[in-house]
């Protein structure tokens, strides 16, 4: 996937997928949020070009598309890392020191919550309760759950696991 034309081909395919979804909508009016949802699931994030595409396709001004994207924390304009890390800040995790765990991730990766490392490998997010309070504090990498993360050493070990 390194050559430019392959990349373009992939992008075209993704846009075609999104276009198909929009074309098949029974009603375009009021569909902006669900279309953005779909777009983010296809592209992984909502870059400018995708927002402009959605605006044109739905006949909604791009300013309003951006208004919605910037309003909801679910939508992101920054691509997620290959390994998206989420630290649970729910009550149980928090009282057991999840905020400190998050700080270690920030320090080790050199990024803030909502950002992605320059090499595109890791992104960092905070979320509320994944329903595994017995394992607090909980960290997710992709779909994989890590429980009882207490020390900086343990955080470093998790990161190391994904450093090829």
């Amino acid at each position: 996937m390194s050559c430019e034309s392959c990349k373009n081909e992939l992008a075209n395919e993704l846009y075609a997928q999104l276009a198909k979804f929009i074309d098949e909508l029974p009603e375009k009016r009021g569909a902006l949020i669900s279309v953005l949802h779909k777009a983010q699931s296809i592209f992984g994030y909502l870059p400018r070009e995708v927002q402009i595409f959605v605006g044109k396709k739905l006949g909604v001004p791009v300013s309003q598309v951006y208004g919605v994207v910037s309003f909801y924390s679910f939508f992101t304009m920054i691509p997620k890392g290959k390994y998206p890390i989420s630290v649970c800040l729910g009550t149980a995790c928090y009282v057991r020191g999840a905020d400190k765990v998050l700080d270690v991730f920030k320090r080790e990766l050199g990024i803030e919550v909502g950002q992605t490392t320059a090499d595109g490998k890791f992104s960092l997010d905070a979320l509320r309760c994944v329903g595994a309070c017995g394992l607090a504090p909980v960290v997710l990498v992709g779909e994989k759950v890590y429980g009882r993360i207490g020390t900086a050493e343990e955080v470093k070990k998790i990161i190391a696991e994904y450093q090829e």
């Binding site: 001004p61 300013s63 309003q64 208004g67 910037s70 309003f71």
Partner: peptide, 10 residues
């Protein structure tokens, strides 16, 4: 119907 301005952020 120019659509230049919109409320953004929260």
């Amino acid at each position: 119907t120019v659509g230049a301005l919109s409320g953004i952020n929260r």
